[in-house]
Design a protein around this nucleic acid. Structure first.
Lengths: 217, 217
DNA sequence: CGCGTCTTTGAGAGGATTCAACGTGTGTGG
DNA sequence: CCACACACGTTGAATCCTCTCAAAGACGCG
């Protein structure tokens, strides 16, 4: 991916014409972050708009007591930062892996959109998709129990298959289910005791998908 | 507002030219809902995109045990429904007051955007604003305590003034702070006991805004 | 080998919800 | 006009879900 010209990448992600993509590309700067870099901090203004080309970006909030919880994570094709209207973020933005983005100032993007309206088409599609995803996540957070969310993430990870290789990292799964390692570990061993899953050295097999699905409450 | 021509309203909300607004307006249907009407149910597909002209729309999730929690609420200028990509909503959409919307099928909107790219500019601005708002709300949900969220909603309701008339409905406030009536009531009477607010028959006065703000944790 | 990360399990604490009961006001239908 | 249902508010008590703290072992890496 990083060998493509930025304009091509933009044209693909935003589904826009060559000239528009070129104009935008020349206004954006390529930037990369290594794993665990902070892209933005809680309290920063988010004037900068970044289009993720590669890697996973996670938003996480730290509560008053200091524990951090993952709010949401985004990948290639997603936009982070945005309006520039909002005063500041209520969360940290960090790179979960090596991350490559194209960045532009929010106001400058707005100006460019006036010149190349078609850019808005792709942007609105992306934003709308992210909005749906986040709303869904919020609904799940409110509706489901901690273990329920954990099981749900497990099912999502398994996809349509029943085997997960390599075995998932409990801590990471728990974090993305917005709970703690310990809760994840307890939930997993409960599944194992009940025979709903089988674990071995290098894989994770769902024996009874139905039973697992019933635990998502 | 309802006396304006739809095209004018659209032009204002989407910040687009007259012709584009007219084209869009002729493809959208005006529709209104009375208070407490369901606009969409949990599990429905959301092919339909609605632009809110008037009224407040609330998304609420019902958990397995049956209690409902408000996820987010939107007002005039906001968009509900969306991509059409997502299979189904994880929440109910209901009218909190009388609501007037302009509706269009999501796919049809996509076609129109191909013809009038400038529509995307306004749409992306709206979506991006909503995304920020929802992310903020998610962060708050994860970070703050139940009473903290309640106090925060109270401050938001008060705006820059110190007096709220008519006095807010505790139950509604609690719901929008994603907690229960009881917790809201307890939080309120605590404020009163400590002299941070004063309540009478028909108003609600914040005596010490600073102290109230300190309780938002 | 030491270090850091991951996992596991137990015990404890705390926050928030749930259940229950009661008083109040409002609107509706007989 | 009155009885009644219904939503709201208040308070107490109990419960339960999660998180925190703690400790210990396994594993991979430099």
């Amino acid at each position: 991916m990083e060998f493509d010209r930025p304009a091509d990448v933009l044209s693909r992600f935003l589904d826009c014409s060559g000239p528009a993509a070129s104009a935008l590309a020349s206004a954006m700067r390529l930037r990369d972050y290594s794993q665990r870099d902070f892209i933005a901090h809680q309290g920063d203004g988010n004037r900068l708009v970044s289009l993720i080309l590669e890697g996973i970006v996670q938003f996480q909030a730290v509560s008053a007591e200091g524990q951090t919880t993952a709010i949401s994570s985004f990948g290639p094709g997603d936009l982070i930062g945005g309006t520039g209207d909002l005063e500041e973020n209520a969360y940290d933005t960090l790179a979960l892996s090596r991350v490559v983005v194209l960045q532009i100032d929010g106001l400058q993007l707005r100006d460019l959109m006036r010149e190349w309206p078609e850019l808005g088409v792709g942007l609105s599609r992306i934003y709308s998709g992210q909005l749906d995803a986040v709303l869904d996540r919020l609904a799940v957070r409110v509706t489901l129990s901690a273990t329920g969310r954990f099981y749900r993430e497990l099912l999502r990870l398994a996809g349509s298959g029943d085997r997960i290789t390599p075995p998932p990292v409990i801590a990471a799964l728990a974090l993305s289910a917005q709970t703690t390692r310990e809760t994840g570990s307890r939930a997993t061993s409960m599944l194992e005791r009940r025979g709903i899953i089988v674990r071995d050295q290098n894989s994770f097999t769902i024996v009874s998908r139905r039973m697992l699905e019933e635990l998502v409450v």
